[in-house]
Design a protein around this nucleic acid. Sequence first.
DNA 1: CGATTCTTTGAAAACAGTCAATCTGTGTGG
DNA 2: CCACACAGATTGACTGTTTTCAAAGAATCG
Lengths: 189, 189
Amino acid sequence: MFDVFIEYLQSKLTITDAEVEMVKQICRLKKLRKKQYLLQEGDVWRYNAFVQKGLLRTYRVDNKGQEHVIQFSAENWWSGDRYSYLTETPARYNIEAIEDCDIVLITKVDYENLLEAIPALNTFVRHLVERSFIASQNRINADISFTAEEKYNDFVTTHPALLNRIPQHMIASYLGLTPETLSRVRSKR
Amino acid sequence: MFDVFIEYLQSKLTITDAEVEMVKQICRLKKLRKKQYLLQEGDVWRYNAFVQKGLLRTYRVDNKGQEHVIQFSAENWWSGDRYSYLTETPARYNIEAIEDCDIVLITKVDYENLLEAIPALNTFVRHLVERSFIASQNRINADISFTAEEKYNDFVTTHPALLNRIPQHMIASYLGLTPETLSRVRSKR
DNA sequence: CGATTCTTTGAAAACAGTCAATCTGTGTGG
DNA sequence: CCACACAGATTGACTGTTTTCAAAGAATCG
């Protein structure tokens, strides 16, 4: 049931059988069909979510009704609204399944306790978040300095595996472009 | 000598006198005059840097020779090239003093050992990096969905204290705009 | 299949960038 | 202390890229 998640942990750090048992105790599995929501704007996000299977998109709706994709989360990656989680305020993001998904959910309290109980996991998560931060900075760099064409080329080389699983207009949104512009960029290659 | 840093730690977490001593042992102070560099592209970044006083800018030079500001770091904040630090490869960023600075440096080995020795610090740093990540996502959101005017207004409300300490052309660069465009945006307010 | 969603294409408009010149303010050295 | 140099900011005219609006083609899914 949580096999993918447990294997992920074992591949990333040394963890005893007892600790694996602790983890399993606090995990909950959530299945999502395509187009269903893991989180909707206005709800408070109270979990840490690990994607065992499938693909999610996190997006925000601006005051003109336009959607902007903030993140994609595929298998073996994490999802959630960290700001809502941290402050326990209503989420400004929506998280929707692009494909049928298997998600592991751990509540905030269980998660924080778990990390205190397993120092190696605490350190692993710290390093994980640091790498996420590095990835964010790379994306910021692309956003502020690349042309439309460069943004797309960068996406293709950085996320080749996602390319054929995500509708083009969502990639456009992720890159801060209109679908029409992305279509034209692609036709020029 | 490290007073500001120690006070910062004490304000953020509970820490014993012995632990404070440990911290002091591994700290090194670096003073920078305005326009001096903390890190230059090509060098490997091997520290964690805490700004006690002053203001730094982290920027990258693109293949057309154009500078792009990735981050500003003022007092009571951290600086560094996390990617170079993590991978021990030559930095792609430059970090330059906008004002005279007092910087606390801790080497990678000392830092990692310290965090293992003080679990509360490990958790604090994890939360710190998580908040940095949230801030990055907010900036990405602005980059992909705001107009020039909205980007500047957002900067003004998010970083009011920095506004008068940073030359306008650097703010423009941070926002992904040309100095001319930012000047025109400002004249319209 | 039929309906819906997604992608492409075209033409016009808006926005931001470029280039060049001028203006402003600041700091330095004589 | 003044004059000058220099960096930074502003302004104008123009260019170019991206967006917008609209419509027509694909592709996908029930």
